[in-house]
Nucleic acid binder design. Structure first.
Lengths: 217, 217, 217, 217
DNA sequence: CATGAATGAGAATTCATTCAT
DNA sequence: CATGAATGAATTCTCATTCAT
């Protein structure tokens, strides 16, 4: 970290290394920020602690982010790209709706609930109101895109007769509601009453699709 | 309320008036606090502003609440009693499950979404993590009690053949999930895409009960 | 306290009773104030606590004392009159100096160290600097008068050949220094090392008078 | 001290300079705090004023001291080490007791009464009661050590026949009492009646030692 | 680039004092 | 007179942000 790595490498590689180091450090700070924000909320998190956790000086944070708010925004931004891609990808496979849903559920459990991403989502849900820019970005990046995909999925399912009506296309929220509740429950009440998220989601889809299947039958 | 009624009143009535005034002022402060907390979150709300909004001096708040945190706790506490009572009340009537649900939905829309209570719930969801006492109180006061009522309702429905299985008894969260999502959506994304909560809830129950009805059929 | 004592007594007796009650209440407040000031110092004492301890409402204090400072002043004032009188009285008896001193010592132990008066003295020593009026009053009331008496005593002792020189007349502080130290020690260090004040004072006088006696011899 | 000496200095010297600056600033704050505390007492002193007097920002104080109380503790702590060392040093010389005492007296006048140290002692005497940690530290650091030294001195004096009895070994307070009284008097009453401390201490030792000498004679 | 000391605006809390009842 | 609720100035402490090194 303190080695100057002076001569050798050509200029291009030099610059590239610099850029990589910069990116790496950015990631370290973002990771530390996520920990602190998730633990204490936006207002409660101290940049001092973020810096300590990231192993950098406090001032360094300001070399990568304009201010605390931008750090928060970037935190959200940085964690969402890969996330929605997965959802959109599910459409490309030509599988039965129920199968797609089951895969999404387990992918959600694996990729979101099992990782720091759930903390990001929780942060958006809990702090988003005071950060319109974050809410806006998140809206366009996640629900808007995800719901578009879901609507397409549902319509295909209806067309194929896999599902009876298009209520779910009108209210895609109905599909993901239990997932959000699971995230919130986990942070608030799991001490008192643990919640088996996978079972919850499975039960949810069972109910939704039993309805549909019967109807279609 | 503002009549002076000086002489006649005996000591008792005097004291009573005092108590009433005290209670009234408490309410005023709580209402102002709700506004500020809902707007800015716990950390962001300034007691100065709460006081100004309540029309009292800053110090006065401390005559009614030990500190900011207790003010927050009492805020939650004060708004919940009447709320669950309604849910529990729904059980006492001997109506078909679907009817009960519809009533709960419209009662929720009227009594929660249409009032400040939705802000309280949002506050619990967004701030509860950093206030374990609030989360605990809320858990015991709302979901625990409400879910007990829901489970009983569902079981009665199953026994009567109104509904096919007891998944909903196992995961009452599935029933209220859309309601919570509606509250959060309202605060976060309604600017971009308004959400018709009543239609959402109706669609939700339609799906749940179509499943059940068909099954039962 | 709450009885109105309406009709009977004549006007004079009425007024007298009023005055007595007033005086009594004043005393109660002063006693409570002494407790609180001694415990917490001037700045640390809360009038709220003084009132509670005195069993009166906070506002009542202001019916008897202009403000906190005057309460403190009156506290000092009220406790000192009787005190110096005793010292001055010691002169009137025509006893040998050593006997007078021994009497003063035991009287000091009894009347000061054994009572709340030691707290008053401590308060003057510890708070007097910030209350010039108190310091001034105390100076004129206690050391000035007491030292005048002491000087007279010493001079008489010298004249009678009971004591060799008049250093003690020049520095009466030398006579009372150990008493003050005892008061301070008591409040600060007695936890770590108790101090037998009477023995201390006796040893002190032994030293002073052995010197004198030998010299005189 | 203010020279920039930029380039040459190596890392070590850099760090050293940092450390020195830190220490210097700490001293500046302590000095300012002493002024304010001595003037207004602990409770009355405002950190705002301490900062202004020290020429730093309010927040800076908190980079050096956890809170107001620790600032006070460190104030006392920082001023006492060198002080007792002097007392203990007096023992090492093999001089007659009276000479040692005279030296201590003039050293006390020079090193304590003539400096800010007297203010520290006064602060301990006046505020110590509400800061048990300060009282404890001071007790172990000053009277305990000083009295041990005094006891040894006195015993040596007795053994050498310079002094008659060991009352002073039992109550070393008797030796320093006038010094403390001088400090208090200075702060409280010197406006009304100045006190020549050196003469007071000399007179004190004269009395003590005349007694002893005669006895020994 | 990186550092971390310094800054100072800002917020919670306290408490002497007032005043309507 | 007595009360005690209300006031708001004053004070401590925090922490995002800046900047000299």
């Amino acid at each position: 970290m303190k080695t100057k790595a002076k001569r050798p490498a050509g200029k291009g590689s030099q610059q590239q290394k610099r850029a990589e180091q910069r990116a790496a450090r950015r990631e370290v700070i973002l990771a530390a920020a996520l920990d602190e924000f998730a633990e204490r909320g936006f207002a409660g998190a101290r940049l001092d602690d973020v810096a300590r956790r990231a192993g950098v000086a406090k001032g360094t944070i300001y070399l990568y982010f304009r201010d605390k708010e931008e750090l928060f925004q970037e935190l959200v931004r940085s964690a969402l790209g890969p996330f929605v891609a997965a959802i959109e990808g599910a459409l490309s496979h030509d599988l039965p709706l129920r199968v797609v849903c089951d895969r999404l559920a387990s992918s959600f459990a694996r990729e979101v609930l099992g990782t720091r991403r759930k903390d990001i989502i929780r942060l958006v849900l809990t702090e988003g109101r005071r950060f319109p820019k974050v809410a806006k970005f998140y809206y366009h990046e996640v629900p808007e895109r995800a719901f578009a995909a879901v609507r397409a999925l549902v319509k295909r399912g209806v067309a194929r007769g896999e599902i009876a009506d298009d209520k779910l296309a009108k209210f895609p929220q109905l599909i993901i509601a239990p997932a959000l509740v699971a995230i919130l429950w986990d942070g608030l009440f799991s001490r008192f009453e643990p919640l088996d998220t996978e079972a919850l989601l499975r039960a949810h889809f069972d109910l939704l699709f039993k309805a549909a299947e019967r109807r279609a039958a």
